[in-house]
Design a protein around this nucleic acid. Sequence first.
DNA 1: ACCTGAACACCGTTCAAGT
DNA 2: ACCTGAACACCGTTCAAGT
Lengths: 203, 203
Amino acid sequence: MRADAKKNFDRLLEVAQDAVAEQGADLSLRDVARRAGVGLGTLYRHFPTREALLEALLRSSFEGLATRADALAMAGPSDQALVAWLRDIIGFTHSHRGVLALMMGAIEDEASALHSSCVTLRSAGARLLARAQREGKARQDLDGTDLFALIAALAWLREQPSAAARADHLFSFVASALLTGGLGGVGLPGSSESSRAGKPFER
Amino acid sequence: MRADAKKNFDRLLEVAQDAVAEQGADLSLRDVARRAGVGLGTLYRHFPTREALLEALLRSSFEGLATRADALAMAGPSDQALVAWLRDIIGFTHSHRGVLALMMGAIEDEASALHSSCVTLRSAGARLLARAQREGKARQDLDGTDLFALIAALAWLREQPSAAARADHLFSFVASALLTGGLGGVGLPGSSESSRAGKPFER
DNA sequence: ACCTGAACACCGTTCAAGT
DNA sequence: ACCTGAACACCGTTCAAGT
């Protein structure tokens, strides 16, 4: 890449980062080019689709979230690790409105520039979930795809202003359902789990 | 209203109905006017905002859903009534993409034309929920606002193509969490409830 | 009283012309 | 190689002019 091209590329990403924080995933591409002081065609040359731009923007964050999933898995109990990671993701999407919704659209489209990011994230979640399931701390009847959809739904909910005040509460509701539900399949002492049923999960 | 105005009004609603089925809540207003064979200003005269158009379109459906909630409450067990109603709503939004998301945005805005429709729907759900809670069949720690948010999230999930295959499963997950969680607060025989915990709710 | 459509300010996307 | 911006086909919204 030529030096001037590289400069434009970096500048575009810099500006796009701000624009996503302000406008979410449906940021105006025209506006990005304008703010970067670059022709509209230059943006399209570097990032042929909106997905390509977001992918360049999110790749490192998502790798970080995947790494963090593994770190959490090493550090603590499987159920707490899973919930802590869910919180991290939803916190992340809070400053990246609509990104997870876009990923829901891209996850089955192998041609999408966001595809591999989606898969990375889903896999990291699936590993955490599987570990919790092996230990009997999570429902057996959900898989990584279900978890990804639940994350997306919770993130979407947090984006809705009218649900903002309830977001934590509803997160706890879903998290506790995720964690306390699987006791039928695995032989844990029923009492310790059922005494917890119905209570929102607490950090 | 003059006869010609009435004709335009009806024609616009007729066309808008189709357009919503095809394009969801973000239907092109220009396209509606075009298809109705009417000037763009005429559409804005009758429906000054997008919400006003959707409200006119949805009012009777929502009144129907509220009535149905009460009918279900009379007809059967409170837990089954609640879940059947959730299914109805989510089924309805399936052919009205984005409407519930729009209502999430309008529910706290009293100036929105959709406000009263939101409240009607939320109240109907709140009544069903309260009845199930009185009978100890639903969690105590959720209210009508929480339920409305959960409905919206589930409806949103169903709109995502990649989650379509899991939509029923995830609905069951949430519904069972809603129904089996409240046993801590109310004095039901714990065994009958806990034997159900973890199983997806079944119609 | 009601209707029309041009006008304005925005989009996303493409591509001929320039350096 | 790379950049530019006009061009095209869309939006939502407003409003002067018509009947």
